[in-house]
């Protein structure tokens, strides 16, 4: 599967939800879509899933526009924080219904997940707690085996052990049945180990699309004497500064060369790693 998003924009009246979004996804990996509230994550994902049309620009999945394309729409599953308050059916009939329309749906695996999440098969889904309804969405997404599976903050309301089951199953599924998973989240520190690639969205624009591992080598925290740190970081992209007395810590974004590392060592500066969470917070924080 291959997904190309080109100059995509979405306006709601005068409000711009997405502006000139461009990225390409070619490999069956787990993609983390990070963004603050209102950054445009759900808008973007609902366009990919043909839930809505963009104002301008294009989405191509395997070279074709997915909107109203029966072949493509069947291969894209979009699971979101769905409200089941009017759903009188029980879990079994919902899964059977999904099986009818999703060609790769694996009922055996779905039942295994139902047991893992300890969901009641016969209870009407509207009587499920929020966390249980979220678990149902996870089951539909994982067992549906759609080549492009999108989870939009699907974990909402799930307790920590259930979220852990979700993460384990996700990784296992990705090994057994590789496909494109797009996970949108702001539980960054909890989910970062899942991501192969990270796409960051801020105020409707893509601010970063990187391989997770190379992204992690790009950020660093330089700590040491104020003057020395200032001297070292002046040519670097600084995304965060902390100071306590004469000690300063500057978070920078950009790869450090061997020379940089040697210089830092000679100056007695400490180079520490930063987490995806820190990177996310600093890159998307509002300007003062």
């Amino acid at each position: 599967m291959n997904l190309i998003v080109n100059e995509l924009s979405l306006n709601y009246g005068n409000y711009t939800a997405l502006s000139d979004v461009q990225f390409e996804i070619n490999r069956p990996r787990i993609y983390g879509l990070l963004g603050r509230n209102g950054a445009g994550k759900t808008s973007l994902l609902s366009i990919l899933a043909s839930f809505r049309k963009a104002t301008s620009g294009s989405v191509k999945i395997n070279g074709e526009s997915p909107f109203e394309n029966a072949d493509i729409m069947q291969q894209v599953a979009f699971l979101y924080n769905k409200d089941y308050k009017d759903e009188s059916n029980n879990l079994k009939s919902i899964l059977q219904d999904t099986e009818r329309y999703r060609p790769n749906f694996d009922m055996e695996y779905a039942n295994y997940l139902v047991n893992r999440f300890k969901l009641d098969q016969k209870k009407p889904v509207k009587k499920f707690s929020k966390g249980m309804q979220s678990a149902l969405n996870v089951i539909i997404g994982l067992a549906g085996r759609a080549p492009i599976t999108i989870f939009d903050e699907v974990y909402l309301g799930m307790d920590a052990p259930s979220r852990d089951i979700f993460y384990q199953e996700l990784l296992e599924e990705q090994q057994k049945h590789p496909r494109i998973f797009i996970l949108s989240t702001h539980l960054v520190s909890e989910m970062d180990y899942l991501f192969d690639e990270v796409i960051m969205l801020d105020e409707g624009k893509i601010i970063l699309h990187e391989d997770y591992d190379s992204l992690m080598t790009k950020g660093a925290k330089i700590t040491g004497n104020v003057e020395l740190v200032d001297e070292f970081v002046q040519t670097k992209k600084q995304i965060h500064v902390e100071q306590l007395g004469s000690t300063k810590a500057v978070t920078i974004y950009g790869e450090l060369t061997k020379i940089d590392k040697t210089t830092a060592r000679e100056l007695g500066l400490e180079i520490g790693p930063i987490t995806l969470h820190e990177l996310f917070v600093h890159l998307t924080k509002e300007e003062d």
């Binding site: 043909s50 029966a70 729409m73 329309y101």
Partner: peptide
């Protein structure tokens, strides 16, 4: 419900 299951609006 149907669009969520990958069915087109036309279908």
């Amino acid at each position: 419900h149907f669009v969520g299951n990958g069915v087109t609006r036309k279908d």
